[in-house]
Design a protein around this nucleic acid. Structure first.
Lengths: 176, 176
DNA sequence: ACAATACCTTACAATTTTGTAAAGTATATT
DNA sequence: AATATACTTTACAAAATTGTAAGGTATTGT
């Protein structure tokens, strides 16, 4: 369960436009430059944002992109779902049915219940956070999210559990 | 941002064992059968859970798996990070550096800040939910998570925003 | 008009994740 | 000891995601 590349980079592209306010227009190459992305890739990301209605494009010699609404009127939830789809796939139960045609837990599924609860919980955070708040920087309004315990710095994360390959808890138990 | 297949199926495999309590032993084929998974795939998932210390295996004719700790002593957080790694990749900033060697936002990154806050927030939910609670079924203790607004049923999700391909908000604007 | 500029679309290559296959190792029963 | 059973490991095939490439379309300034 993680932020995808498209979500991460797409959000950054949108923030570029948002920082300039609603009238600020930028070209793909400017945005790509700012974010260290290739022009074709930034182009693809902006195209997704445009199709989802978050940015507006104009073509031609003096064309470019601008944000469709005020940064305080766009939530993080909108941006992430625009870029990566909903938190829970609408076809979750048919997608994760294993080898069978229909999931064995179709009638009563505690997993689905708890993941649905989690999705709703996350949605609360995301809809409560606007693009403007992100631009203005931390602390993001933690009063709204009292449970978010701290800002996770890159340094702090260094010590955290790594990906599976890198943390075989077993590995070298002395073979006798 | 979504639950991965390994997280979903791996969790289900663990729940199989958890339902029987700490002494219940099951073979891969039993679990695979119960979950509608192929035996090799269930095998792979259980292998991950074993390496992360959540289940214990014994080989030979009367072998099988059992859960390593009481279901009330295992949190959803442990299970999901065991199966899918941490919520934020420890190398997030170097991984998402675009075309450049180093991310342009390395000094000051509002995106990283807000996503770190989100990760902490999610972690609170996950560490506050035990495997036992999942087994015992909903309502998962929403007193602990008052913000989780509702259980998201499969039906309710049907109406939600679909994946990008399926919801081109543009699509058929009358060409003049 | 025409050319320069900037977005748009489609196809495809590279990478990662998902899932399968097969041969190997350990243990209990006979 | 032999054998059946059940986990283990490694390699690989399939599918999804990520990122690139190239040619097309629209607009504006000259």
């Amino acid at each position: 369960m993680r932020i995808t590349a498209v979500e991460e980079y797409g959000l950054r592209c949108l923030l570029n436009l948002a920082r300039g306010g609603i009238d600020k227009q930028m070209s793909i190459s400017e945005i790509a430059e700012n974010e260290g992305l290739s022009v074709p890739y930034a182009s693809k990301l902006l195209s997704i944002l445009r199709k989802q209605g978050l940015v507006t494009a104009s073509r031609g010699r003096s064309g470019g992109f601008h944000i469709s609404r005020l940064p305080e009127q766009i939530t993080l939830y909108e941006v992430l779902t625009a870029l990566g789809g909903p938190l829970i796939d609408p076809n979750h139960c048919s997608k994760y049915s294993g080898q069978l045609e229909q999931c064995v837990h179709i009638d009563y599924c505690t997993v689905h219940d708890v993941l649905g609860g989690l999705a709703g919980y996350i949605q609360t955070f995301l809809t409560g956070t606007t693009i403007k708040e992100i631009i203005d920087g931390l602390p993001v309004d933690f009063r709204k999210h009292p449970e978010a315990p701290f800002e996770i710095s890159d340094k702090a994360l260094e010590g955290e559990l790594s990906t599976i390959e890198h943390t075989e808890k077993e590995e070298m138990k002395s073979k006798e």
